[in-house]
Design a protein around this nucleic acid. Structure first.
Length: 530
RNA sequence: GGCAGGGUAGCUCAGCCGGUUAGAGCACGGCACUCAUAAUGCCGGGGUCGCGGGUUCGAGUCCCGCCCCUGCUACCA
């Protein structure tokens, strides 16, 4: 017997410093479409979404709100979970970094890296802005007009063996965000990870497995970074209470990145042996801004720990609003709830996935959204459904007739090939476009066959059967192909065709709907009259 | 500065290794049809393919220079 292919897909866990927004939604919707497509192919898919709940920002936000950090992240987790549910995201798990199962995995991973000899005690030194409560790179700072004696040394370098921690005031630079505060040069004893050791192995990885980072643009960027040389990174923080305590050194907490990345393992049960049922992950779906962490730090950590690497990382692009960067303070902003409410969650999903290239950046605009909704969903697809079901109801008493295959079935086969090619390459926007071609072809087919003429002539009864049968199959095919994009509406469409669920991809070529009782129902994508 | 990607109809974009009159969708105009959400189908108008050189029988499609846009340029998702 053949075992079903298991596929583990992850998304970036979202930082618990604010409610879900459009950017979060784009990633989850895209990842969900990828997961749903693979399920339609018959794979056993596990899609995981989650929250990154440690760190200084969380602690500060909670304190400002007058609640405990745990209460704070609990509230946000509920909001995110609710949003994903409303958007029809089919995640199988929701991992949170404050969960015991996660802490356990982080400890186990660190112990493995330590056993490999890739952790050591060192000193992290850098400019520290008290106003920002964070370290600053030199390029983030501005010189003070009367440049005094400079303090030598670049920010953020590790000095192995240096033991003493300290701080002193810096007077020749200042933080542009807090110009009145005195900048500090701080040294902190931390744990370091020997990232430098993995420069060559990582370059080999990119050579041997070019598909590891997709799309290709991101791979080139990462290669440049690696070729530029890798320095060891500090992976623990002192004085940060809201985090996973460092194993064996509770004065420190695990640095946010190490903590967060490990979620991909903890969500499948690591270090319990059966985590390998899902690991290695098929794809980490992330934003293009965090490729470095997923394509350099993460594989290096896994190599060190002797664990398998994920098969790939997919970096999607970003969204602009009417051509400009999202910025709440500048008023360039769309509330996610408003976007969902406009035409419903399925239409919102369709718009984002059809309009925004999944391998690049895209734009959200209300005008385009409305145009897509009207042209694609209401007029093209929705009307096709309505007119087809109406004719089956009127001409054949609501029962799909048996009919020979037609040019429309041939067209559906061609569309299916193009669709699979696009979806297998993770080009979701092309997959959606391919599917919609079938809707257009079906509309043209209706006019060509003119069933309202066929029904008038009893001699053409079998011709009419052929027309309606073929149209019903086209609708079922559309329900399948568009299910990853609009799961709610397509399940509804399948139901109206008398199907208990959307057909799988392999079932499409031999599918026969003859004898099924259809239900016309309400218009699938109503147009609001204004 | 360096590296990478991009500048093609009003808008969003396709255009493999160079080859007849540069394509699609949307928007716009005309015609047809009536099953349907005043929906659908067909036809059409519309482009100096960023700018300037070069290679070639022939270049959005290759080479050189320039202009403009975007991303990356390592520990803060």
């Amino acid at each position: 017997m053949t075992e079903r292919k298991t596929t583990y897909l992850t998304t970036a866990i979202d930082y618990a410093n604010g409610p879900p927004h459009m950017g979060h939604a784009l990633e989850k919707i895209g990842a969900d479409a990828m997961a749903r497509y693979r399920r339609l192919k018959g794979e056993d898919v596990r899609l995981v979404i989650g929250m990154d709940e440690h760190g200084l920002n969380v602690l500060q936000s909670a304190t400002a709100a007058g609640i405990s950090p745990q209460q704070w992240v609990d509230n946000l987790a509920d909001r995110f979970r609710d949003t994903w549910k409303r958007l029809g995201i089919s995640n199988d798990d929701f991992i949170r970094t404050t969960e015991p199962r996660h802490k356990r995995a982080v400890e186990a991973l660190i112990e493995r890296i330590a056993a490999a000899g890739d952790l050591y005690r060192g000193t992290y030194a850098g400019y520290y802005c008290v106003g920002c409560e964070s370290y600053k790179g030199e390029d983030e700072l501005v010189p003070v007009a009367e440049a005094g004696a400079g303090s030598a040394g670049s920010a953020g370098t590790a000095t192995a063996g240096a033991a003493q921690a300290g701080q002193r005031e810096v007077h020749h630079l200042r933080c542009p965000l807090h110009p009145t505060r005195t900048l500090l040069w701080m040294e902190e004893s931390n744990w370091f990870f020997r990232l430098s050791r993995f420069q060559e192995p990582l370059l080999r990885l990119l050579d041997e497995r070019p598909e590891f980072i997709q799309p290709e643009i991101r791979r080139n960027e990462i290669r440049r970074v690696i070729e530029g040389g890798l320095e060891d990174i500090s992976v623990s923080r002192a004085r940060l209470p809201w985090g996973v305590p460092w194993p064996g050194d509770p004065e420190h907490t695990v640095y946010v990145w190490i903590d967060a990345l490990t979620n991909y393992l903890s969500a499948v049960g690591f270090p319990d042996p059966d985590y390998t049922r899902w690991w290695p992950a098929e794809l980490h779906v992330i934003g293009k801004d965090i490729t470095r962490f997923h394509c350099i730090y993460w594989p290096a950590m896994l190599m060190s720990a002797g664990l398998e690497l994920p098969r790939g990382v997919w970096a999607h692009g970003f969204l602009t609003f009417e051509g400009r960067r999202f910025s709440k303070s500048a008023g360039v902003w769309v509330e996610l709830d408003d976007a969902i409410a406009r035409h419903g969650p399925d239409a919102f999903r369709y718009y984002l996935l059809r309009e925004v290239p999944w391998n690049g950046d895209g734009d959200f605009s209300w005008t385009r959204f409305d145009e897509r909704y009207t042209a694609d969903l209401a007029d093209d697809l929705g009307n096709l459904v309505n007119r087809t079901l109406s004719m089956i109801e009127r001409y054949r008493a609501g029962v799909v007739p048996a009919g020979a295959r037609t040019s429309l079935d041939e067209r559906a086969a061609v569309v299916l090939d193009a669709y699979r090619a696009a979806m297998d390459a993770n080009l979701l926007h092309q997959g959606a476009a391919a599917a919609m071609e079938l809707a257009s072809a079906a509309n043209a087919f209706v006019v060509e066959r003119a069933p309202w003429q066929q029904v008038k002539d009893p001699a053409l009864a079998s011709e009419l059967d052929t027309t309606l049968g073929s149209l019903a199959r086209a609708l079922a095919t559309l329900a399948t192909l568009l299910e990853p994009f609009m799961p709610g509406k397509m399940a509804e469409l399948a139901s109206r065709l008398g199907l208990e669920r959307v057909p799988r991809l392999v079932e499409l070529p031999t599918m026969d709907l003859a004898g099924r009782n259809i239900a016309r129902g309400e218009v699938l994508f109503p147009k609001e009259r204004k």
